[in-house]
Design a protein around this nucleic acid. Sequence first.
DNA 1: GCATTTTATTGTAATATTGCATTTAATAAA
DNA 2: TTTATTAAATGCAATATTACAATAAAATGC
Lengths: 110, 110
Amino acid sequence: MGITKSEIFSEEQNKIASMAKVLGHPARISILQQLFESNTCICGDLVDKIGLAQPTISQHLKELKNAGLIKGNVEGTSVCYCIHRENWVAMKKLLISFLDHDISTTSQCC
Amino acid sequence: MGITKSEIFSEEQNKIASMAKVLGHPARISILQQLFESNTCICGDLVDKIGLAQPTISQHLKELKNAGLIKGNVEGTSVCYCIHRENWVAMKKLLISFLDHDISTTSQCC
DNA sequence: GCATTTTATTGTAATATTGCATTTAATAAA
DNA sequence: TTTATTAAATGCAATATTACAATAAAATGC
């Protein structure tokens, strides 16, 4: 029904999935890469650099902010965004701990 | 429009996003964890262990298979699934290379 | 005050996703 | 051959996501 049955999964499983989900769109990957590479924490420049309309970028920024991965700071009429370091590190650890399972010992049936 | 404008992003950005997207559902995280932890490559046992209907699990397995993260092997009437090692390692490297940006040097505006 | 600039919000259309009942297909067991 | 058993495919309803035009909000400059 388009709705996820989160209640039947563990908190960790839901957290991993929700973080991965936020990373599951190229526009958000692109935004994060810009924030990594740019010295100045880009704002509406993102609209120019990425080829999407301003409301669309704004929406993606909101999702990243809701997930806690970025922070926004109002500077005059513009808004400056940057990576939320603590949360980024926490997310990274969570995902890597999942990705880093040792697969050399698991049996292969196929 | 529910449709992603993949053509305006790089191949790498699309690949990272699509891999993250596949991991963006707790049922698929759960399935992968079971495949990691189980010695026997579980099949329909997943339906019992996870509380979702058989067609739903089957659909999630299909997505994981399409993404190349798992392989399926028919054994009699049942199907045995396991991690696709090479692809898993490749996906892991791709995601970690993205996650592992050095954030200590980027300026914080907020 | 008023215009300008920048970003957020709202509303809407199109498409995607999730979940399941039902059906189909394939193999095994009798 | 007939009857389970198991998994995939189909079809559908409900909800979510993506994208943008239009509008509103907030700050600046005049």
